[in-house]
Amino acid sequence: MRKVIVILAVMLANFFVEAQVKTPQASPAAKVEQVVGLTNIQIDYSRPSAKGRTVYGDLVPFGKNWRTGANANTTISFSENVKVCGKDLAKGKYALYTTPKADSWDIIFYTDTNNWGLPEVWDEVKVALRVTVKPETLSKSVESFSIFLNNLSNDSGVLELSWERTIVSVPFTVPTQEAAMKSIEKTLAGPSAGDYFAAAQYFYQTNGDLNKALSWVNSAVSLSPKDKDVPYWYLRLKSLIQAKLGDKKGAIQTAKLSLEGAIKEGNADYEKMNKDSIAEWSK
């Protein structure tokens, strides 16, 4: 009898889990993803609808901070540093708050994005940027609150907030030329020390061409900053490749250099590995 009761309880539990009622959200979630030049921008927000109500000055009071949507924070993120209305804004993720007024709007980028709507306690220190723009009147009413990225070019765009008969446009610029030049210079300069090290490590670990691996790790060593010691993990890899190629004398010399670096940096693991390898290769 007890077994039957347990089985029935499990069946009922499964029924209630599977029978959860699903209904549409009053303010459905939306996402905007856009690449502007070389900058990735993402906006996550919820879209309330007017439903015959007067929005600005009533549902959304003038002169008070607004969550700029519904439900959790409306957030906007930038993969690069940008300028909004000509003012600097560091790359990162922000809550997007606004202060609507009849003749102007404050647009606020707030560093704390973990609030449900407005923060319980507003902290002005968390305001990364505040800019003021002029609202415009639309010829046609917008039923659901909408955020778009429009007027896109390689270097700029406009963040648009529209609802009812009001649209607010926030111009921004992105550092496309700067990012492109960095990419060009890095590519034309050739692989970095880290790139050569990674390639050599892969070939060593997968039993690839060890002569190529040795050439690459030598390039990694030679490209290391001249004002700093060669990374001891670079030298450790070189010694392992040399040993695998049968050059135990060279491997010991390189391992001793790696050992010196490990001791200097206080890395006990590399210190032990190098000592063990030197002892093994010296037999």
Results as ranks from 00 to 15, higher is better:
residue 65 N to M: 15
residue 88 D to Y: 13
residue 101 K to T: 14
residue 82 V to E: 06
residue 103 D to N: 14
residue 66 W to A: 08
residue 72 A to S: 12
residue 37 G to R: 09
residue 28 P to D: 07
residue 87 K to S: 04
residue 63 G to C: 03
residue 79 S to K: 03
residue 62 F to P: 00
residue 114 N to D: 02
residue 62 F to V: 09
residue 32 V to Y: 01
residue 65 N to L: 15
residue 97 Y to L: 15
residue 38 L to S: 11
residue 116 W to N: 03
residue 58 D to G: 00
residue 52 G to I: 01
residue 52 G to C: 05
residue 95 A to R: 02
residue 77 S to V: 00
residue 40 N to K: 09
residue 95 A to H: 00
residue 31 K to E: 12
residue 109 F to Q: 08
residue 47 R to L: 08
residue 67 R to K: 12
residue 73 N to Y: 06
residue 31 K to I: 10
residue 75 T to K: 04
residue 101 K to A: 14
residue 56 Y to K: 02
residue 28 P to L: 10
residue 54 T to F: 00
residue 103 D to C: 15
residue 75 T to M: 05
residue 66 W to N: 07
residue 98 T to L: 12
residue 26 A to Q: 14
residue 50 A to V: 04
residue 89 L to E: 04
residue 109 F to W: 09
residue 91 K to E: 14
residue 36 V to T: 06
residue 100 P to M: 14
residue 61 P to V: 02
residue 35 V to W: 08
residue 71 N to C: 11
residue 62 F to C: 01
residue 68 T to C: 13
residue 36 V to R: 09
residue 96 L to D: 07
residue 58 D to S: 00
residue 88 D to R: 12
residue 97 Y to M: 15
residue 61 P to L: 03
residue 93 K to E: 07
residue 77 S to M: 03
residue 34 Q to F: 01
residue 80 E to S: 10
residue 96 L to A: 03
residue 36 V to I: 10
residue 91 K to W: 00
residue 29 A to C: 09
residue 69 G to L: 11
residue 97 Y to S: 13
residue 111 T to C: 03
residue 34 Q to R: 01
residue 68 T to G: 11
residue 105 W to N: 12
residue 62 F to W: 07
residue 34 Q to K: 07
residue 28 P to G: 10
residue 104 S to T: 14
residue 83 K to R: 10
residue 59 L to V: 11
residue 96 L to R: 07
residue 105 W to E: 12
residue 43 I to Q: 04
residue 29 A to T: 12
residue 117 G to L: 08
residue 115 N to Y: 08
residue 95 A to K: 07
residue 116 W to D: 02
residue 70 A to M: 15
residue 111 T to P: 00
residue 91 K to L: 03
residue 73 N to G: 11
residue 108 I to W: 10
residue 65 N to H: 14
residue 34 Q to M: 04
residue 49 S to F: 09
residue 51 K to D: 05
residue 66 W to T: 05
residue 81 N to Y: 05
residue 75 T to V: 10
residue 112 D to S: 08
residue 103 D to Q: 15
residue 84 V to E: 05
residue 64 K to G: 01
residue 70 A to E: 11
residue 105 W to M: 14
residue 62 F to I: 01
residue 111 T to I: 08
residue 103 D to I: 14
residue 38 L to T: 06
residue 106 D to F: 04
residue 82 V to M: 06
residue 76 I to T: 06
residue 55 V to F: 04
residue 77 S to K: 00
residue 94 Y to K: 01
residue 82 V to P: 08
residue 31 K to F: 09
residue 38 L to P: 00
residue 88 D to V: 10
residue 107 I to P: 08
residue 96 L to W: 07
residue 64 K to L: 13
residue 89 L to M: 10
residue 39 T to M: 09
residue 95 A to E: 08
residue 99 T to D: 11
residue 66 W to L: 06
residue 83 K to P: 03
residue 116 W to E: 09
residue 35 V to N: 04
residue 69 G to A: 12
